[in-house]
């Protein structure tokens, strides 16, 4: 009885993917596969290597799968017509081939891996320089990123302004990020623009990117960092270069200012459930370095003791 009902259920379940695919195209869900729609040279390289790797691997895996299935079907016990050689267990030729194929594949992919790893190295951004080299290259923009529990602070040191939980960058301009954390490890990730890079307290990592198109991109923290982690997203607005200048001037007039004491208040554990953003003007020079130094000297922003069974 139960089995019958379940069989019925199973039949319905097989229908779901069909319905689901139909839903995809009508709602434009395919646009949501952000990794397949890179909007900057870094994400572009990541995507290109994905295609390459998958193509090479499928070249082996598909024939192997077919071969295995054919063997299983042909040499099933009930097929009495098939050859049966119970002692055949070695062939120099086959063994040579089965070692050679993976070795050649790995050699090829290993070479691509070497190429790709150096191409996206943010400390030597040949890729970035190359991709904006043709046009009149705009001066790179510096952004210092500090993560707290559980917010993002983006400092524009040259402009002496900062924003929280919202990143605004000009289109077609290389942006150099310096990243550190005041508390625990986070991970800077804007799927359509750049892959992940760890943000570690007491250390400084780097990321470089160029956005090709104006638009709104979602950024995330990808490394688990505690209770407010799931709300630690940030909007990335890529705007025209002039718009960016206007915006920066506008923020420079915002009433909130930020010095180290202000940062310590900002860095208190806060779950950004409503997606609030902040703007700061007159940001102290060297705030980023000061935060790193304080952390290396033992500054911590403690998490309070939880009640058991509660948050």
């Amino acid at each position: 009885m139960v089995a019958k009902r379940l069989r019925l259920l199973a039949r319905y379940i097989t229908l779901i993917p069909g319905l689901f695919l139909a839903g995809c195209s009508s709602q434009g869900l395919s646009r949501q596969f952000v990794l397949f729609r890179p909007a900057g040279p870094l994400a572009n390289v990541d995507f290109r290597f994905t295609i390459l790797d998958v193509a090479v691997m499928l070249g082996i895996i598909v024939p192997t799968t077919i071969m295995t299935i054919v063997f299983l079907l042909r040499y099933r016990k009930t097929n009495t017509k098939a050859v049966y050689e119970p002692k055949w267990s070695h062939s120099n030729f086959i063994e040579f081939v089965v070692w050679t194929i993976p070795i050649l594949t790995v050699a090829m992919l290993g070479y691509y891996s070497y190429q790709g790893t150096f191409a996206v190295d943010p400390y030597n951004p040949r890729l970035i320089n190359h991709s904006v080299g043709g046009k009149k290259a705009p001066r790179p923009l510096d952004v210092d990123v500090i993560t707290t529990d559980w917010q993002w602070l983006f400092i524009y040191p040259k402009q002496h302004i900062a924003t929280a939980n919202e990143l605004v960058i000009p289109v077609g301009t290389p942006v150099h990020f310096h990243l550190t954390s005041a508390t625990v490890v986070n991970d800077f990730y804007i799927p359509k623009l750049a892959g992940m890079i760890d943000i570690m307290p007491g250390m400084r990592t780097k990321q470089v990117l160029v956005a090709d198109k104006v638009g709104l991109y979602q950024g995330y923290s990808a490394n688990f960092s505690g209770g407010g982690f799931s709300w630690m997203g940030f909007k990335t607005k890529v705007v025209g270069q002039n718009t960016f200048q206007t915006w920066a001037k506008h923020i420079a007039k915002s009433p909130q200012t930020l010095n180290y004491a202000g940062f310590n208040a900002f860095a208190k554990p806060y779950k950004n459930v409503d997606g609030k953003t902040d703007q700061f003007s007159h940001v102290s020079a060297g705030l980023f370095d000061r935060v790193i130094k304080a952390v290396t000297m033992g500054k911590v922003y403690k998490t309070p003791l939880p009640t058991y069974g509660k948050a």
Binding site: V45, T50, S113, V120, D187, P191, G195, M196
Partner: peptide, 10 residues
């Protein structure tokens, strides 16, 4: 492969 890994690591 690191360039792929960076985009899906976590």
């Amino acid at each position: 492969m690191p360039p792929i890994n960076y985009s899906v690591h976590n």
